[in-house]
């Protein structure tokens, strides 16, 4: 069951601020969607391995050679906030 309190809690974890109106709208919509997922409870998955990829993938390694990447200035051309050649962000602690 997804109620308004759950939507607020999950949105906070996902770094999304929701207005009271959005919380109300989303909790009904999301509850319908999550309820529909319950059909999967019918499946016997006891001894089934999960498929994190649809086709067999193998660990890929390449020789550890130095290769040219993007120029620093190309990357910082895109930066939202930059100071002295570093990304500038609000305080974390």
């Amino acid at each position: 069951m997804i109620d308004e309190a759950k939507v607020r809690h999950v949105a906070k974890i996902a770094r999304i601020n929701l207005s009271d109106e959005e919380v109300k709208k989303f909790s009904k919509q999301l509850n319908d969607v999550v309820e529909s997922f319950k059909i999967l409870d019918e499946l016997d998955i006891e001894n089934v391995a999960p498929s994190f990829h649809p086709i067999k993938t193998e660990n890929v390694l390449r020789e550890d050679l130095a290769k040219k990447g993007l120029e620093k200035k190309q990357v910082f051309r895109l930066a939202c906030h930059e100071k002295d050649g570093h990304f500038k962000s609000p305080k974390v602690i």
Partner: peptide
Amino acid sequence: TFARMSGYRSQYYLRAMKARTL
């Protein structure tokens, strides 16, 4: 985010991954 949260991961995300195998 809900489907992967602690307490719900097995019930939703992991179950879907196993359903995918089937």
